[in-house]
């Protein structure tokens, strides 16, 4: 038994319901990153690439290390969000102070030198955090967002899945040896 007012309510409900749904995702995200800003991601990519540079195999950048960190900053690394903003900020500041440009704009050698001094400064904790996460993202399973196309495993010659047969033993036949001939 709905009065006019209530049917209006129902319409409201309908609209609200639909809106609640559509509000979720509107417009393609501006950056491919979940938490990092575009600038932060650029600096971080340059930073990680310095730790694992590309040679005949992909470096940290192509292996998607920053994607790994970005995804995990919404999950396991939530507590490191602030530390990342501060560390990236600090590194860029240092770059401006010493080389008058953002970190990502420096040459590889300039970046390496800068990072070496960054590591020895009061920022050593942040440096080690990024180093740890870079190694995780580079060598971990691709399912967590890094190690794109098993880049590091291929470099090491480790197949993503080994060939592993099944033993054909029989509990009823004590002589059976599992098919090893």
């Amino acid at each position: 038994m709905l009065t006019g007012v209530k049917s209006l309510n129902r319409r409201n409900f309908l609209v609200t319901a639909a809106a609640a749904g559509t509000a979720a995702c509107t417009g393609r995200p501006e950056t491919p990153w979940r938490t990092l800003t575009a600038d932060e991601a650029t600096t971080l990519e340059a930073w990680c690439e310095c730790l694992i540079p590309e040679d005949s195999d992909p470096g940290a950048k192509r292996a998607g290390v920053v994607r790994y960190i970005d995804i995990q900053l919404t999950r396991k690394f939530k507590r490191h969000r602030k530390a990342y903003s501060q560390a990236i900020n600090a590194l860029d500041k240092l770059a401006y102070a010493q080389n008058r440009g953002p970190f990502a704009a420096l040459s590889f050698d300039e970046r390496s030198l800068l990072l070496a001094s960054f590591e020895k400064s009061e920022n050593s904790k942040a440096f080690n955090m990024v180093l740890d996460h870079t190694l995780q993202g580079y060598f971990g399973s691709p399912r967590h967002g890094g190690n794109k196309d098993y880049a590091s495993w291929r470099m090491l010659g480790v197949p993503p899945i080994p060939v592993r047969g099944r033993l054909q033993y029989s509990l009823l036949d004590p002589e059976s040896n599992g098919g090893i001939s």
Binding site: G165, Q168, G178, G179, S181
Partner: peptide, 11 residues
């Protein structure tokens, strides 16, 4: 798949 001994006909 063959077994770890990689012998033909194993597994």
């Amino acid at each position: 798949a063959p077994l770890g001994n990689t012998q033909v006909r194993s597994g």
